[in-house]
């Protein structure tokens, strides 16, 4: 028998509470093998020592302390559950998907601004009701499908508005003094038709006629046609929308006072130098000479350009103070 087998045998004896010294075979082996003898001594002593170890039982009140801890834990769990109640949707299986969808929708709103377009169109319609200039602005914007529709609507509405304004002016003109110089901002809305109705007695405003031409085009076509005759008017209306008060040249009042009694329209009055002006005005053909003579009293007049039509002429005069 080998030493390893003897050690196992010794362990078996001790584990079963038997005395290995009673086994003759073991006794014979330990007489010859000092290693196994030492091991047997250690195992017997060790087993005896361990058997006499104090047993440590649970202290008094152990069960109550376990019960208390369980109760405290249950209360804290309940409190946590109550606190987490409003966020219960976060535990939902679809919470991540729902939040991702919401995020995507938010990004779409930020990028495409679907509601802003609606808002813009409404505001533009409001402005377009007051001035033609805004409709021009709309025209200049990107030719998106939405803008196209909007532009058509604005054009129709502005034409309708112009008709209403026209009727007002006609009524006003019919009742007012013939010699009254109508302000440029109002006259600019006068279409040709209104002037013709007044039988040539009214001021035949060139600009107003041009505008009337333009509007007839709008009614007929989808887009604005850039006619030469209205280009200047448009320029002027862009720079001076109807809602903004016109800054009059101080010299204009003097000229108007000088030509009181004649039906004129000063389209433009520019300062060339300190005492020199370039005046563009529309006058009746029959008054043309008289006006130049009257102006000649205060200014040295040079006729730069004349454009004559049936009853009215547009003249560019260079005026220099005497």
């Amino acid at each position: 028998m080998k030493c390893k087998d003897f050690k196992e045998l010794i362990d078996a004896y001790i584990d079963n509470g038997l005395d290995p010294m009673k086994d003759e075979e073991i006794l014979r082996h330990i007489n010859d093998c000092s290693g196994c003898r030492d091991y047997l001594q250690f195992r017997v002593k060790y087993a005896a020592e361990v058997k006499g170890f104090k047993r440590h039982n649970a202290p008094a009140g152990f069960t109550e302390s376990v019960e208390r801890r369980l109760r405290e834990r249950a209360e804290s769990k309940f409190n946590m559950r109550v606190l987490a109640e409003p966020f219960v949707f976060l535990r939902s299986r679809f919470s991540i998907e729902a939040m991702a969808l919401a995020g995507l929708a938010l990004i779409m709103v930020i990028v495409y601004r679907p509601f802003t377009v609606e808002h813009k169109s409404v505001s533009e319609i409001e402005i377009a009701d007051r001035t033609v200039t805004v409709s021009e602005k709309v025209r200049d914007e990107k030719p998106a499908a939405e803008n196209k529709r909007l532009r058509t609507q604005v054009k129709k509405e502005s034409v309708m508005k112009d008709k209403a304004v026209m009727n007002d002016i006609i009524e006003k003109e019919a009742g007012s003094d013939k010699n009254t110089i109508v302000s440029e901002s109002i006259k600019s809305y006068e279409p040709k038709r209104a002037l013709e109705k007044s039988g040539g007695e009214k001021i035949q405003n060139k600009k107003a006629m041009d505008l009337a031409d333009a509007k007839s085009d709008i009614q007929g076509e989808e887009a604005y046609s850039e006619k030469k005759s209205v280009s200047r008017y448009r320029k002027a209306s862009k720079s001076m929308p109807a809602s903004i008060p016109v800054q009059k040249n101080p010299e204009q009042d003097k000229i108007e006072a000088l030509l009181r009694g004649h039906e004129i329209l000063i389209v433009e009055l520019k300062n060339i130098s300190e005492n020199e002006y370039l005046c563009t005005m529309v006058v009746k053909n029959e008054d043309l000479k008289k006006i130049i003579v009257k102006l000649g009293n205060s200014y040295s007049v040079t006729v730069v350009k004349t454009k004559t039509e049936e009853t009215v002429s547009e003249i560019d005069l260079k005026l220099k103070k005497k």
Partner: peptide, 15 residues
């Protein structure tokens, strides 16, 4: 009944 279970096994577990 859990208290009874604790009572029965507490010494064994503590040891």
């Amino acid at each position: 009944v859990f208290n009874e279970i604790v009572e029965r096994h507490k010494d064994m577990v503590f040891s």
